[in-house]
């Protein structure tokens, strides 16, 4: 926990707030300038001119769930790689072998998901 680390966090905090504030203020400022005539028909969801055929708050395709699960597995593995990647240069062959073994495991996981059909959109 050295000094630059804390000032980085402070900077990011301020920057985030500023970037959020900009569109909010613009929207609020132009509230007085733009027209606003809400109506019953205007407030209906757009469905190419016909009344809404089904309610959008409904169960959706199972395939999204599969991909979400596989995504979480691989994303975590990738993040673990980020922890070691920058120092790999100075660690030499042994560390590289260990990382290769880890990547091999990841590849094995991909192979498994592939064979089990988790990567097919059904």
């Amino acid at each position: 926990m050295n000094e630059p680390y804390q000032s980085d966090v402070l900077f990011l905090l301020g920057f985030t707030l500023a970037v959020f504030a900009l569109p909010v203020l613009t929207i609020l400022a132009f509230r007085w300038l733009r027209p606003s005539h809400p109506g019953r028909l205007k407030g209906e969801p757009y469905e190419s001119g016909v009344p809404q055929a089904s309610i959008p708050r409904r169960p959706f395709h199972m395939a999204y769930y599969n991909f979400a699960l596989v995504f979480i597995v691989f994303e975590v593995e990738t993040l673990l790689l980020f922890a070691i990647a920058p120092v790999l240069r100075d660690l030499g062959w042994v560390a590289l072998g260990e990382v290769a073994a880890f990547v091999g495991l990841v590849a094995l996981g991909l192979f498994y998901a592939w064979r089990r059909g988790a990567l097919v959109w059904r």
Binding site: F67, A68, F71, F74, E75, T78, L81, F82, A85, P86, V87, L88, R89, D90
Partner: peptide, 20 residues
């Protein structure tokens, strides 16, 4: 999220070479 993974993995390679 699907394309996020290959993209991130590629950047890991760059981080390895750059050492930072």
């Amino acid at each position: 999220i699907s394309y996020e993974i290959p993209r991130t993995l590629v950047v890991v390679g760059v981080a390895m070479l750059a050492g930072s």
